[in-house]
Design a protein around this nucleic acid. Structure first.
Lengths: 147, 147
DNA sequence: ATAATACCTTAAGCTGACTTCAGGTCAAGA
DNA sequence: TCTTGACCTGAAGTCAGCTTAAGGTATTAT
């Protein structure tokens, strides 16, 4: 069993944040001894899941829903599985979008390297939008294509 | 040249957002005809870059800095290149973190599939933390490992 | 005994990125 | 003529996710 201060150290999360999560219902029926929160293995795993779901873009109130399902026991396994399936798809699509963002960023890096060498953008402008070197053109197209 | 309404349609961005960006200085010296904003090719490319930089996690005020560099001409090529380099690393590391999140999510999907089959978590609990099937164990370890 | 720590609570404050509101201009069509 | 639609402004409002403030309790160290 850990105190709030120990968990804060362990997870590098501010104490105020842990209390906020508790207030929002993210640790349903956490134990207390004379008013002081006691974090057990259940709460630590909850915190790991909270960090994961937050990174995946889920809102606190939806994470709370998940924690309530956990507290309700085996009857909610299907809901919990659905949630993770949905969230998995969300993250897969987010990574996909970020790969496109990366193409744009890599293209811009190359672009400004060239601009610095040339001292201006004249040659570059003349290459746009479809006369870029093969590799670069591929990046540019992926970055500027729709969807 | 496009009106704000046309750009809003084209990019699927609310008019209020475009005006907000303008107010924040993201379209320095955009043209106007009798008070009405005229979006040219420069502003459209700016908007593409804004969407990319926002996705990459950059704040509006830093995007404004970039737009000001653009307005200042060739002397700021190095700053602009540095910015894209930094942002590229940010996104690469973000993708890396999301891959770990995915491992956690995939693990949880598997976990609840098993729990549904078994009707309880007894067998699963007994496998934790290091007696999981090989493939799954790898996910679990990547998701629970530090750093 | 007292002072320093580490915990507690409720309520208010903050930040970023928008959105909404109230009121106004201007050109084109019925 | 008048009204509709697309634009404009400044100011205030919203929302999520925290953080800070003000005041209090309980345990341990000197």
């Amino acid at each position: 069993m850990y105190t709030i201060g120990q968990v804060s150290e362990l997870f590098e999360v501010p104490i105020s944040t842990l209390r906020y999560y508790d207030r929002e219902g993210l640790f349903p029926d956490m134990e207390r001894s004379s008013g002081i929160r006691r974090f057990g293995e259940r709460e630590l795993e909850a915190l790991r899941v909270i960090e994961c779901l937050k990174r995946s873009g889920m809102e606190i109130k939806d994470i709370k829903q998940f924690m309530l399902w956990c507290a309700r026991g085996s009857e909610t396994y299907p809901e919990r599985r659905e949630l993770f399936l949905r969230q998995k798809e969300t993250v897969e699509s987010e990574i996909h979008k970020l790969e496109k963002v990366l193409d744009m960023l890599r293209f811009k890096c190359w672009y400004y390297e060239q601009a610095i060498e040339d001292g201006n953008e004249d040659r570059l402008m003349a290459m746009l939008p479809d006369k870029l070197p093969e590799e670069i053109q591929a990046m540019y197209d992926r970055a500027h294509g729709d969807q």
